[in-house]
Amino acid sequence: PPGHSPHSLTPSRWALWFFKNDRSRAWQDNLHLVTKVDTVEDFWAMYGHIQLASKLSSGCDYALFKDGIEPMWEDSKNKRGGRWLISLAKQQRHSELDRLWLETLLCLIGESFAEHSREVCGAVLNVRTKGDKIAVWTREAENQAGVLHIGRIYKERLGLSTKTIIGYQAHADTATKSNSLAKNKFVV
């Protein structure tokens, strides 16, 4: 069994953010920092205390980001980056969402992308009536080798079939178009 001393998530401390849609307030006022974790033990304590993704109301988001990076395009560590986007069908909320989101979190805290893990900024979950979304955000959309490595590992870890195609979109493109129209810069 694992030992008793805490297992550090070196080099990263991770911050969990929660967004609850309240149209009477500005977007940033709806974004709340929940907690920061820097050990495996703290991560599970946090995970055990928050609602499962599938239990959140529509319009809510979770985001897990490296400490010091805010979960928004405007952050200097995000603005040149982009995201690997997983769009789920409505019925997958009950069958798949919790597993896929947990797997995403484990990819992040486990630094699963080898040396390219430093390119990862965080991950975002959007719970939406029209279909939930999960995305892994990376720092530099022009880093083709890093982005593709992360995409391939991520797709494999999610257990997606080879027939399923996932796309990477630069935030700069997403910001100027509606999500469904932003073009894929890379696919795996």
Binding site: P2, P11, V40, E41, F43, G110
Partner: peptide
């Protein structure tokens, strides 16, 4: 240093009681 944890290792901790 950099630490990489595989998913099975991380999952082993999920239901461990917090021990002080």
């Amino acid at each position: 240093g950099k630490k990489q944890y595989d998913r099975e290792f991380l999952l082993d901790f999920q239901f461990m009681p917090a021990c002080i």
